[in-house]
Design a protein around this nucleic acid. Structure first.
Lengths: 112, 112
DNA sequence: TGATATATTTCACCTAATGATATATTTCAC
DNA sequence: GTGAAATATATCATTAGGTGAAATATATCA
């Protein structure tokens, strides 16, 4: 849900979710795009505009940081501990949404 | 992901997702708000502005329709077959996201 | 009647995402 | 080296979606 500021509420948009996920291993921006395409088998694709603006935001929020030992022109990033915590929280949040929906639907079906 | 038009791409935002879910049984707007609060145990709450604008959009998209036999001032709605199909699709889409994330993380852990 | 709860609508504003485009930088065949 | 293609980053202008707040309408019932 696009609201005031999803990160403040410890909720990840799909874009932030997948960028954080891919940065559990250090990567630069362009590679992140490719990795997300690959891991979702094309279901999710993030363009450069979304990517680089989101990287900046995640970086400012302390959820990712420049990877050490990479001083080239390619800026390489890595998820932080805080970022990993939030990512794990968000996986649980997403599971709960699905579970809530399934439970709700099956309750109605049984009532018929 | 807030994009061009999520309904065109057969993707539901959280707001649309929960409204459709609650309308598997006929309800008017105000009740939808309460039901969503209740079923998510307060984790998701949708205000009137979001609710009524989303109802209009879902209605225009043919995903919900006025419930028959309710001709009062309270406008009662019900999910359509098309809406139910999309809701079910979206549950699967959401499950896949979680599965993708878990698989991705566990692959990295094993590689350490 | 009037107070309170229930219910709907609209406004103005913000965040997130995005297509498009511009611009670097790297690689490598020639 | 030169230049073309691939790789990589950045920014702009626009749109969709979500929201708090406030206004208004309707229902309920003491």
């Amino acid at each position: 849900m696009a609201r005031r500021n999803s990160l403040n509420e410890r909720e990840l948009t799909d874009t932030s979710f997948f960028i954080l996920l891919s940065l559990t291993e250090p990567k630069h921006g362009y590679l992140i795009m490719q990795e997300i395409e690959k891991m979702t088998e094309g279901a999710v694709s993030i363009g450069p505009a979304s990517l680089y603006t989101t990287i900046r935001k995640l970086s400012e929020a302390g959820l990712i940081r420049p990877a050490p030992g990479t001083e080239t022109k390619k800026k390489t990033y890595l998820i932080t501990t805080e970022g990993k915590n939030l990512l794990n929280e968000d996986i649980v949040r997403r599971e709960q949404i699905v579970r809530t929906a399934k439970d709700y639907l099956s309750e109605r079906e049984n009532a018929e």
